[in-house]
Write a protein that binds this DNA or RNA. Sequence first.
DNA 1: CTGACGATTCACT
DNA 2: GTGAATCGTCAGC
Length: 209
Amino acid sequence: MNQLKKLELSFYDRPEVTEIARELLGKVLVTNIDGIYTSGRIVETEAYAGVFDRASHAYAGRKTARNEVMYKDAGSAYIYLCYGMHHLFNVVTNKADIPHAILVRALEPLNGIETMLKRTHKKILDDHLTRGPGNLSRAMGLHTRYSGYSLQSDQIYIAVDDFRLDQKKIVKTARIGVDYAGKDAKRKFRFIVQGNPYVSGGARMGGGR
DNA sequence: CTGACGATTCACT
DNA sequence: GTGAATCGTCAGC
């Protein structure tokens, strides 16, 4: 098995949130939750660029009990509940009081697949296990309970291994499910590994509210 | 306190 | 492609 090396705070503590989102592709997300080790390679991310981004929870400096984690120091986990049933996992970047975050939307499972299947109540491994932010959080055991955790902790972290992602496979596209954000919805803040079967494609909404 | 709504997913037509 | 599920959060009264 490849040697894993935890990303240091300096990786997250940078102003270029889209650059960090791009660099997260190919890295390994690890959780040790309930004493069970699970991991997966990140194949899809979305950047949320703080107070000027209408799609961000922190748009115009909004700060509430839910999103205050976004204002914390770089390298924190921001996890919140969406649609009353999905826990979405984000990485907080940039300095304290600058609410940048990156949503991790899809993984390619590496370790603990048995556990992931159990958590998601699935019987066989397919491309849907960790495809989409809600699915991957369920498979990895991520819960709003862990929002605010440091990614330097042993429960949740992101690491590098020997894997080298072909930079030509990285594609930049518009974000998903943020149609309400006006012109910011069209900004190319989503990064995917082209051709990877775990990348979520459609996830569109009916009403488009 | 109340109402409206989502950084989604899945079953069904 | 369409619509329901489902509940914490937040703006507004």
